[in-house]
Amino acid sequence: HPLQNRWALWFFKNERSRAWQDNLHLVTKVDTVEDFWAMYSHIQLASKLSSGCDYALFKDGIQPMWEDSRNKRGGRWLVSLAKQQRHSELDRLWLETLLCLIGESFEEHSREVCGAVINIRAKGDKIAVWTREAESQAGVLHIGRVYKERLGLSAKMVIGYQAHADTATKSHSLAKNKFVV
């Protein structure tokens, strides 16, 4: 069962003695439903990773960094989790995110999706879906609404979209939301 896109899984392990890019490793690429599950069942659950690690699943050819030409004008829908959600919800939310990507769940706006990243951090884990053009409001909002519904987030919980250009020039906590759903 071929996927619409080939996807690359990346793993980041924070070793401070090395440059950021040297800590980023390409794990494997998948382009069928069957290969996706083979990969998923072979790797550690996100909740079992140590703090400072990331997984990223990106379309083949796009590097999981905002500097990539297909990311730099884009941004991300960011889901910030409370510490206790690592044990209760993190793996479910990340798997749901992956299924949204490989299943092309955002209709014609799936073309706008670049990938997704999960950051495992002691102060609170984060999951984000990256899209390629922060100015394409209709597409970004459609993706955000579908994504929020697929994650099963309550209407009261607001998630925000931040342009990478803003995230890159300000500290993460100060980057403002361009859109919210």
Binding site: H1, P2, L3, Q4, V33, E34, F36, W37, A38, Y40, S41, E96, L99, I102, G103, E104, S105, E107, S110, R150
Partner: peptide, 20 residues
């Protein structure tokens, strides 16, 4: 055509043994 798969379809494959 465009290959879209809903979550239930994808989940059906999770524990399926690989065909040899």
């Amino acid at each position: 055509g465009k290959k879209q798969y809903d979550r239930e379809f994808l989940l059906d494959f999770q524990f399926m043994p690989a065909c040899i």
